[in-house]
């Protein structure tokens, strides 16, 4: 018998600290598989965020740094410029990247830093207890929007992939989802392309992955996957927003 599927070499044996059914684990695995595919385990440096994924340095079997809240792209910039032959990635949530870290991500894209950013969007602040994030959908109930997010008070959620795709320094920007096996396979392709864009020196690459937060959404893991399909994807359309190898989008 041949092994069809086994855990990636670029993941450690640590048990993930995420809640049951949280798709962070799937996204970790896809990043690790992309590193395996590039044969880059010994030459990759990751930057962990603040948020649920703060312990990512325990889970990836590559060199890791941990940055202050939202500052992973700035730390990754320093690493990449000092060690330009390494593959450098940041792994950030929506509270980290789209709120406190908005300036860092925008300027990293504007400078065309040759780093890869994995942006995990679950429309809520997970670790701190389910507060409203910049990506929380209109009407979504969180601990700081107990009657649902109101557009007249808070505006509409920020679509980061579309914004990043507008920047000249961006080589690749895509939004993917991991709510069923087909979308997991597509997400894997996008993440691998984002790493290849960095290796080819094309510029900044970001993959936004729609993720779940069953605990703070108040749903079962299965209900949460369905909510991604029925509520999140209509507002956050999936697709490749920019790919420098295929001309401007």
């Amino acid at each position: 018998m041949a092994v069809v599927f086994e855990k990636s070499r670029s993941l450690t044996d640590e048990i993930l600290t995420y809640c049951p059914g949280c798709t962070h684990g799937i996204i970790h695995r896809l990043v690790a598989e992309a590193i395996d595919d590039l044969g880059a385990q010994s030459s990759t440096i990751g930057v962990a965020p603040v948020g649920c994924a703060v312990f990512a340095y325990n889970f990836f079997a590559v060199d890791m740094m941990q940055a202050a809240h939202g500052r992973a792209p700035a730390v990754a910039t320093g690493i990449k410029r000092a060690l330009p032959d390494r593959i450098v990635f940041t792994y950030q949530g929506d509270g980290d990247l789209a709120s406190i870290g908005m300036a860092e991500i925008m300027h990293a894209a504007a400078r065309g830093e040759k780093i890869t950013t994995i942006f995990v969007n679950n429309a809520i602040y997970g670790m701190t207890g389910g507060q409203m994030a910049p990506t929380t959908l209109v009407g979504q109930v969180t601990t700081t929007s107990p009657y649902g997010r109101k557009e007249e008070l808070c505006g509409k959620p920020i679509r980061m992939s579309e914004i990043i795709a507008q920047m000249d320094g961006t080589a690749y920007a895509a939004r993917v989802s991991v709510h069923d096996p087909r979308h997991v396979m597509e997400a894997k392709k996008a993440i691998r392309r984002a790493f290849e864009a960095q290796r080819g020196g094309e510029g900044f690459a970001m993959v936004e992955v729609l993720s779940t937060c069953p605990t703070n959404w108040g749903m079962t893991p299965i209900e949460a996957l369905k909510w991604v399909a029925t509520d999140m994807i209509p507002y956050y359309p999936l697709g490749v927003y920019k790919d420098s190898s295929k001309g401007a989008a």
Partner: peptide
């Protein structure tokens, strides 16, 4: 199953 498992619990052989 293995591709959806967040915790890399499952190994598949065929």
């Amino acid at each position: 199953c293995a591709r959806m498992c967040p915790d890399c619990v499952i190994t598949v052989e065929r």
